[in-house]
Amino acid sequence: MHAFDYQSPSTVAEAIELMAKHNGSARPLAGGTDLIDQMRVGRLAPDVLIDVKKLDELNVLSADAAGLHVGAAVPCYRIYGDETVNSQYTALADSCHIIGGIQIQSRASIGGNLCNSGPAADSTPSMIALGGVCVIAGPSGSREIAVESFCTGPGKNVLEPGELLVEVRFPARPANSGSHYRRMIPRNEMDIAVVGVGASVTLDDSGQNFVSARIGLGAIAATPLFAEAAGESLAGQPVNDESLEKAAAAAREIASPITDMRGTREYRIHVTGVLVKRVLQAAIVRARGEQIDYCRGH
């Protein structure tokens, strides 16, 4: 690996100052599971690594009236070990359970997953479905941006030199809500999504009609996508096969995947529809307070 400097600031302000000072030649280091590998193969060669994983703000994992705060450096195992996440933001727990293996989950964070900006990132569709908002700190202050607007291309995002993703905030969950994430892979675990779908639904008190829904799609375009029209098509509709089929069709419509070793374009578009229905069905079951028949990784 090339030679670089390592800094371990103790405050966010200090981290941003360091990031700004190095003007694009510094990279923040959280779990390092993408970054260290990319440096070893020579794809990235930053002069300085700024270790941000011990900063308090990036380690927050708590719920308050504003919703759930997940610090950008909180590792996956803490996320799926959290009671609030498991009971209310379940799609996020589903994602974190299948990012890499257990060793990777000890270090990898959803902030890193988002900033790495891979089109097939497993946590991004869940964050989109759950209405996540990125809180970004920078030399000229803080700003917020919806998760679905964060990635701009494969490996690219809206962060300017000197900016740091601090946390992702999720709105409080309404009553009768449920969510789920699932991906299609040819193996049982340790693979990259051929297609990944995260969905969140809110039902009325009867549990028979949709109040609202949000759907996030992965691995079917240059960035993870917010399938807004697919989610909106469900609002006010009864929970039945016809509504689900309409949402699946709307999701298929915005899918523009590439053909690669993991699957052809046609296959990915087909699987998008299948997964949207399955993931919605699971989210509906959870919204009704029931357990889904889902074995993580299968």
Partner: peptide, 17 residues
């Protein structure tokens, strides 16, 4: 590392302080 399994090839030694 601190009670959690990690792959030591993806940890910098300086992070183990």
């Amino acid at each position: 590392m601190d009670g959690r399994p990690v792959v030591s090839c993806l940890v910098l030694a300086v992070e183990a302080e």
